[in-house]
């Protein structure tokens, strides 16, 4: 039985760190046999952020598709149980409460799944002028990167609106080659994985020989921090870059764990008036 402990916080990075350690632990267990059974104890969780739910649900879905049986002990907290049900943890949900586009796992057809998400955004998320376009801008650039570069076999996406807190959290996770892995394959050199992630955020592209490439992540990071007064966190293999609302970047080296894929997690502030996204996207 693997018990999960999560610090009660609104700060994504702290819960992500704990979740990565937890996933590293169960990696040893599930590596033993394809048809292993694994027991996850979530009873002690008092609060789980969407980023942590996304990471865990992605891994559980992967394990199930590999033939591993996953037994989950539910949280004791009814509030957490209700929250997990609302976000469709762990395998997704047909019901879509208006504050949440539930966890959606997919193996292909990226545009189809993103179009579903966009229709949801149109109907349910705040209708401040240009805001929805800004959300779609970020999501579409991340989706294109997923399709173009990641060689993913399994991806997960979700979005949750915290209207009272004044932000929307959106996450997209894949089990692909990772940014550092893609750069290595393309002959782009770097020392640490966080440098690779940082280079990608600055526009370094593995398709630099083609014009018009490398714009997605830089414009996304500018729009997130300066346009939406939000934050962006990218974790890929052993590197992470956290861009704060001021645009400042903190770089992280994962000491004991690594992520088998890439997680992009954005927190978009909800503006009260029209947002002009053009200065950040052109």
């Amino acid at each position: 039985m693997h018990p999960l402990h999560l610090i009660d916080t609104d700060k994504p990075l702290q819960q992500i760190k704990e979740m990565l350690a937890f996933l590293e632990n169960i990696k040893h267990e599930t590596g033993k046999a394809r048809s292993a059974k694994i027991e996850l104890d979530l009873s002690r969780i008092e609060w789980i952020l969407p980023c942590a739910s996304l990471l865990l649900s992605h891994r559980i879905s992967e394990l199930r598709s590999e033939g591993c049986k996953v037994d989950i002990t539910a949280p004791r907290s009814q509030a957490v149980v209700n929250h997990l049900k609302q976000i469709g943890f762990p395998f997704g949900n047909e019901d879509r409460p208006h504050t949440c586009f539930p966890i959606c796992h997919f193996r292909n057809n990226v545009p189809q799944h993103l179009n579903e998400m966009f229709r949801f955004i149109d109907q349910n998320f705040p209708k401040v002028e240009n805001y929805q376009n800004g959300l779609k801008y970020v999501l579409s650039e991340l989706a294109d990167n997923l399709e173009q570069h990641s060689a993913f076999g399994h991806a997960t996406v979700m979005a949750q609106c915290f209207e009272k807190k004044g932000y929307i959290d959106i996450g997209i996770m894949d089990n692909g080659i990772t940014i550092p892995g893609r750069f290595e394959k393309s002959g782009i050199t770097f020392n640490e994985d966080f440098e690779a992630v940082n280079l990608a955020l600055n526009g370094k592209s593995t398709k630099a020989q083609e014009e018009g490439r490398g714009w997605g992540l830089p414009t996304t990071s500018e729009l997130m921090s300066k346009g939406f007064k939000g934050s962006l966190l990218i974790i890929s293999r052993r590197g992470a870059v956290d861009i704060s609302t001021s645009g400042a970047r903190n770089l992280y080296k994962l000491k004991d764990e690594s992520l088998s894929g890439t997680l992009v997690y954005g927190r978009f502030g909800i503006p009260r008036q029209k947002v002009d996204i053009t200065p950040y996207t052109s």
């Binding site: 966080f194 940082n198 955020l201 600055n202 990071s221 970047r249 903190n250 770089l251």
Partner: peptide
């Protein structure tokens, strides 16, 4: 940004 990358604050 490739020409003028923002300075990274800290490494952790």
């Amino acid at each position: 940004l490739e020409e003028n990358p923002p300075k990274a604050a800290q490494i952790f």
